[in-house]
Design a protein around this nucleic acid. Structure first.
Lengths: 227, 227
DNA sequence: AGTATACAAGAACAGTTGTTCGGTGTCAAG
DNA sequence: CTTGACACCGAACAACTGTTCTTGTATACT
């Protein structure tokens, strides 16, 4: 009995209930439906509503004005929506993809406005993976193989937080005085700085504090394998 | 005029409209409000509704049953919500974090039901980074340094698609006959298989098709640098 | 033909619902 | 004390709304 296809009339009734509810915040009356779909008699609307209810498309509260509500799609989208939206939106961070990071160049940060929500080039990540503030984050795409000692490949995306003060253990993007940019673990050791590659088989390098300029702190590395 | 505090009665009216709408998918009638708040006369409810409307807490459609709707919070949460939900949810993929991947062990996949939406251990990623189906994805945390030749570090998270048929160029998780699991680029070459490390400085290995078992296809690698 | 079923239309009914109007009590300003 | 704004109550009204009943049409099946 549930295999019968919906008639055009029933489809437009469902569509009208959907749009009307979305627009007015309440379900339409039987006569409003009839007027919209082109039915002069309320009984015909009622007939089709009963049919649609039997097919499971909507629920009805007897003897209650506007006592109908769509099941599934919209019922959830109106009923339990505030929680779903709150969770989904609050857990989703949109990080602008601002440029590239290459070995021989400083990091190019196009504009300094990080509160971007409608950009096309952006990376969406769960907020649970990015602790702290989420408004001073930006993403860069790695160009070239020069970062392989940091376990970062060509094409990888690094999400960074703009911060010129690094703490011990942080992985930072540093611009060295020899015009190279690398990603290394940062350690203050007395009057010099140890830059430790992420790859444990590789040796650290030691530099003077004046030779390094911390461009930002790496928060997350993303690598897409398939497109 | 807008600085007057809400009376207890008005606050409970607003609360009732909110909860009633969330529960039934339609605004309450004047008499339903009166019954809930403890007002016997419909005119008093109407009086307070007019007052609340003047204060900007709700809108009213004259001469329409249930013709009231909360402004702000709920009006948005009901009106423009389906688009927000559609965007937020459709762009957000929740990948279950099923276990660990180590060098000396096959991949352990706890349960074979991937349609997990309420698990605690899950990774949320933008759907734009995960092409194709999103229901047969799972995530594994890498243990140990055995994957450094695949540019994958200890603690990294790999998101994989369950797929035993690999195509040339795919990065796959393979279980070799010597009881090691590695991540390599997969290439069919005649009657043997070439497994190419992601690190371009490392040499490939060649194996017989019978010696490899493809556990899945790597879609994404995640590395959290800071917690 | 006869029958059953799905679909549709119009009318009428009864309960619901927003609105309005007269009246009451309180409280502070004039 | 009087006045008026404010909050409230009860009742009545007219319009709205869901339901039901009767009738009609078209199609398929026996």
């Amino acid at each position: 009995m549930s295999e019968k296809p919906l008639s055009e009339r029933q489809k437009s009734i469902l569509a009208y209930i959907h749009s009307y509810t979305a627009e007015h915040g309440r379900p339409p009356t039987i006569r409003e439906i009839g007027r919209a779909v082109g039915i002069t008699s309320t009984s015909v609307v009622n007939y089709n509503l009963t049919r649609l209810k039997e097919m499971g498309f909507l629920e009805r509260d007897a003897d209650v004005s506007r006592g109908l509500r769509l099941t599934g799609e919209l019922a959830q989208a109106v009923g339990s929506v505030q929680t779903a939206v709150a969770q989904a939106i609050s857990n989703l961070v949109r990080v602008p993809l601002l440029g590239h990071i290459k070995a021989g160049e400083p990091i190019e940060v196009g504009h300094d406005n990080f509160a971007v929500y409608d950009e096309e080039d952006a990376i969406e990540v769960s907020a649970s993976m990015l602790p702290g503030r989420t408004n001073d984050l930006f993403a860069l795409r790695v160009s070239g193989d020069s970062m392989i000692d940091a376990m970062v490949n060509d094409g990888d995306i690094v999400i960074m937080r703009q911060d010129s003060n690094a703490r011990n253990g942080d992985m930072v993007a540093v611009w060295l005085s020899d015009d190279t940019t690398t990603l290394k673990h940062f350690y203050h050791e007395g009057d010099r700085i140890r830059l430790q590659p992420a790859n444990p088989t590789m040796e650290p390098i030691y530099v003077d504090p004046g030779e390094v300029q911390v461009q930002g702190k790496v928060m997350l590395v993303l690598r897409q394998m398939a497109n």
